[in-house]
Write a protein that binds this DNA or RNA. Structure first.
Length: 179
DNA sequence: CCCTGATTCGC
DNA sequence: GCGAATCAGG
């Protein structure tokens, strides 16, 4: 779908209201990605959303060595393809003053706090060192010097040695700690 | 990992 | 003009 006047206006409005590109894309409907939104925003020259008192130096040589762009026709490269439609994503995710701008459906949502509950592994699910396997979460729990030590043991992700919960946890800690 | 906007460039 | 891919950052 092209950019009709209406859609452009909505884009402008939402952008100026401070919504993120992905949120605007979701608002505009299917077939519109956040990249499309950002691209359009740039073309409209309304990038500067809020510039109180500062001349942004815009220092960025950017880097585009010579990597091949889109492979027009995705031939059959024999490998495990894991498609991720990225469509079923509708997340309010409150941020700043943006939240009240778009709210098609404000339902009575019940928020169930995850927290500690997910960290508790029933005894019959705990694993010792010898019980670990490829698809087993290797997140250690407890004191290794004590009998009170075991591994998470949940089914681990393809992308790592941990289950979803612990994988996320490990990552965040690492990035934050990173130098 | 999740996400953000910015940029480039084939179409 | 459009937007996917990529970059750079949080």
């Amino acid at each position: 779908m092209g950019w009709t006047d209406e859609r452009v206006e909505l884009l402008k409005k939402l952008w100026m209201e401070g919504l993120s590109a992905s949120q605007i894309a979701a608002e505009l409907g299917e077939g519109v990605t956040r990249n499309a939104v950002i691209g359009k925003v740039h073309r409209l020259k309304l990038s500067a959303r809020a510039k109180p008192t500062n001349t942004a130096p815009r220092s960025r040589p950017a880097a585009r060595p010579s990597a091949p762009r889109r492979p027009s026709t995705s031939s059959s490269s024999t490998s495990t393809m894991s498609a991720k439609p990225r469509v079923s994503m509708s997340r309010p995710q409150v941020m700043g003053a943006t939240a009240l701008a778009a709210s098609p459906e404000m339902d009575t949502e019940v928020y169930v706090a995850p927290a500690a509950a997910e960290l508790f592994i029933p005894e019959d699910k705990r694993l010792n060192l010898l019980q670990l396997s490829e698809s087993t979460c290797k997140w250690p729990i407890g004191d290794p010097l004590t009998k009170d030590f075991y591994f998470c043991g949940q089914h681990s992700l393809e992308s790592g040695p941990y289950c979803e919960f612990h994988s996320r946890r490990a990552y965040h800690q690492l990035e934050k700690k990173k130098r």
